[in-house]
Amino acid sequence: MNIFRLTGDLSHLAAIIILLLKIWKSRSCAGISGKSQVLFALVFTTRYLDLLTSFISLYNTTMKVIYIGCSYATVYLIYMKLKATYDGNHDTFRVEFLIVPVGGLAFLVNHDFSPLEILWTFSIYLESVAILPQLFMISKTGEAETITTHYLFFLGLYRALYLINWIWRFYFEGFFDMIAIVAGVVQTILYCDFFYLYVTKVLKGKKLSLPA
């Protein structure tokens, strides 16, 4: 564990909690892409099956359980409890265009052709594009609530910090996982446009609205 991975995990946890609290307190999921949240729940489910097979550490297990629990709670709020506030008309990204290619790639490019490894690889590839429905929805509605931009900022920051973590681990431990690194770079690049808007607008107290 290093400071970059720890702050990355805490940033990820912050994002997940911010979103869950925003939906729970405002009793509304307006502006939130339910499709992205379903993809994240799928990412955590396929990635953390090792909860059933191996114990790494209390921290590892605790965080995985929290991530899975919060993501399913968020999906439950969006599609069940607060369904009336779900803005389905703007959440129209064709997720099958993500899941099918990612599923195919996971079979072709992986470290080991075993069920757990392929599912882990699928989750890594899927996570790198899972935010696209949310970014697409914001481009369609033309704006995003400020709390939603904070959610996206911490979500994007977490994988950017993981990139630094991988540089750190390569340099000090000689460890590197090319699949996670390439997917992490793609994932972080997808946030660049948002990061620019976040820094130039939201941090100056303006509302995030598109076109910029």
């Binding site: 991975r5 995990d9 990820h12 990635r47 099956l49 090792d50 059933l52 097979t53 191996s54 114990f55 790494i56 550490s57 590892n60 965080m63 995985k64 991530y67 075993s114 069920p115 757990l116 490894e117 882990w120 993981y162 973590n165 996670a180």
Partner: peptide, 10 residues
């Protein structure tokens, strides 16, 4: 389910 799979990164 092989038990040496556990990934230490989240």
């Amino acid at each position: 389910l092989d038990d040496d799979f556990g990934k230490d990164e989240l």
